[in-house]
Design a protein around this nucleic acid. Sequence first.
DNA 1: GTCTATAAGTGGATAGAC
DNA 2: GTCTATCCACTTATAGAC
Lengths: 234, 234
Amino acid sequence: MDTSSSARHTPETRSRILDAAEGLFVEHGFEATSMRMITSQAGVNLAAVNYHFGSKDALIQEVFRRRLTDLNRQRLAMLERLESEAGGAPLKPSRIVEAFFGTALAMAADTEHGGHTFMRLLGRTYTEPNAFVRQFLAEEYAEVLERFLGALYGALPDVPREEILWRFHFMMGAMSYAIAGTDALQLFAGKFDDADPARMLPRLMSFLLGGLRAPLPDYTGLAVKARRGGREAA
Amino acid sequence: MDTSSSARHTPETRSRILDAAEGLFVEHGFEATSMRMITSQAGVNLAAVNYHFGSKDALIQEVFRRRLTDLNRQRLAMLERLESEAGGAPLKPSRIVEAFFGTALAMAADTEHGGHTFMRLLGRTYTEPNAFVRQFLAEEYAEVLERFLGALYGALPDVPREEILWRFHFMMGAMSYAIAGTDALQLFAGKFDDADPARMLPRLMSFLLGGLRAPLPDYTGLAVKARRGGREAA
DNA sequence: GTCTATAAGTGGATAGAC
DNA sequence: GTCTATCCACTTATAGAC
């Protein structure tokens, strides 16, 4: 944000800190990453973080804002292009899904400029315990989420909105694991022969669309009251 | 609350600590949860954790082991029952998926004995940065994962194993978000009208099976280079 | 803008009384 | 097994020199 001409002498310190923080947050999480780790990784002085960002929390926020603004702008632009091309007609669900998740996967495929690192971080942060981070993320996402859900409601008029909502949520979970799984997860470690990022998009898209267009669930036979305790053996 | 006023003997100190830790880990994460928070929530002395478990890391491990052993035993028992019922014939994919994810959702529906709390924690922990936690989880899951993947390979002989592997991974992501989403996520906050846990199983199952049985992705037009590990699927 | 030094506080872990 | 009192490594954040 600081664009004063006198600050020209150290133009990199800010972004060096952001890059270092991004990488360390992915590797260790927010709490386990100390200011000392960040500044030493970035090759800057310990006090620089507080000078440039004010606090650790503000730094975390800026790590997300810097990339998320761009990602969500891309998403909205893509959706608007689809809508103007369709000229009032309902969009194909596959195009909507691709506009939302394809942009994310494109960013995740960029290993050179930190996009991959960031998307791993983002995927995990949806379920982040830190309340302030979740709150901030929800605000950053509010508009784009509203727009894409609205587009899906229009594209799938026969599917109850509640189901679309849940399925969109499931899709976000699948995507997070898709990105995390290529290198972060130990669970499937050594099992994947083919983790080519270029194949991830068609791979994930098939799965997502299959799930989105699946037959609606059958709720008949469910007790009205929620059952609890899975212990029972019929 | 206080059961005995005379003797401060608390034979259940261990489990009180485990319960408190489980809840606080979900709410704040491992790093942000201090021993002092845990012991004060459990109503026991600070030193009790180190006496009973040895260290904070060992406590974390025990929080998982206590429930995961049971969950995975249920899963394997369910799978074995399916296999013995089928008598050598290949299983239906839907039954396999239900055996794995249905047991997890049943545990997540149990809000009274902490199952719900634990499943939220578990879902997040697959992508946990803490290496020691991930490693431990991978070991706990090794057998059950091997067995269920094998069953799916047999049930879907025409689908390349690599695709099944990825899709299973996607399914786990969807399930994690399904469980987390009912109360942890802020992103969709206020949007869900119907978060009835009893409806979650059919809801999620439709999505998962739709994704698992989706048409295979079309890789034509993608560059074949940049593959690692070298094994080519025929 | 960058640095050193330090303040003010929290973390996990333990020794030793009971 | 449970408790108190404590150790000290390590945290974020800041004051003030350059």
